[in-house]
């Protein structure tokens, strides 16, 4: 008998479908058979813990070797909570993004936009005891992709979250307010529920903005909450 508690199932409409025809690459990359329903056990209810000793934080993407990256400097701050509003402390957050011109520092990115010798685009931060994280970067540019004719990804920053269990693992993207490309983006629009979708858009925040330094954005994230019923019951 064990009393480990699993995590709640996703709320209806809050998550995209792996079969999203408007996003062409999903065609051959979604299972055709239904997923096997299986209640969480210790394997899904527990997860890795990362120590800043082994995974040193890298909280300022806007400077490399003392040299400033091109682009509009931004500060992104937010709080990670679970579905009950409880903060998720000391959890590792990984970020990666294109440079200001919309080009990734990646061999497979062939977009005809300049690389920036002072920008790589990877970061790592940990939440504090109250679930807050913050990093400095530059606003990523939009970039074209071949999903459909004249397809452009809206400005976005990729995120990786862990939380307390393997079930709370989350990979997502943060978007910017007022981006006209959001209306045409099948990845963003793949989230069925409009409110859930719009929570992927950061808010401009004058309190996070630092005078003479950087624009501030607020991006809060919710990880799955514990189910109320212990698994042993």
């Amino acid at each position: 008998m064990n009393d480990i508690i699993g995590f709640r199932p996703p709320a209806p409409g809050s998550q995209p479908d792996n079969n999203t025809p408007a996003y062409g690459s999903t065609r051959a990359r979604h299972p055709l058979r239904p997923l096997l329903a299986f209640p969480h056990t210790i394997t899904e209810a527990t997860g890795p813990a990362f120590s800043p000793t082994h995974f040193p934080p890298h909280t300022d993407l806007s400077v490399m070797n003392g040299k400033l990256a091109q682009g509009e400097r931004i500060i992104v701050r937010g709080r990670i909570t679970d579905e009950d509003g409880r903060p998720v402390p000391n959890t590792m957050v990984e970020i990666w993004q294109a440079n200001a011109a919309g080009r990734y520092f990646h061999p497979l990115d062939t977009h005809d936009a300049p690389l920036d010798p002072n920008f790589k685009g990877d970061g790592r931060v940990f939440t504090d005891a109250d679930g807050w994280y913050q990093y400095t970067s530059i606003k990523p540019g939009a970039y074209p992709w071949r999903n459909h004719k004249n397809a452009w990804r809206p400005n976005h920053i990729h995120y990786s979250f862990f939380g307390p269990g393997f079930a709370t693992r989350l990979i997502t993207q943060m978007y910017f307010p007022g981006d006209p490309l959001l209306a045409f983006d099948p990845v963003f629009k793949g989230v069925p529920d409009e409110a859930a979708r719009n929570r992927l858009i950061a808010n401009f925040d004058l309190d996070v903005t630092q005078p003479e330094h950087a624009l501030g954005y607020r991006f809060d994230v919710v990880l799955r909450g514990r189910a109320a019923t212990p698994m042993g019951i």
Partner: peptide, 25 residues
């Protein structure tokens, strides 16, 4: 089965990791 309380927010939506995740690899 559990239901969310009215004050709670559902977990943030996932988005594809995309082809450039090696920046954190």
């Amino acid at each position: 089965m559990t239901t969310l309380t009215t004050t709670a927010l559902a977990a943030t939506a996932a988005q594809t990791i995309g082809p450039y995740w090696h920046l954190i690899e």
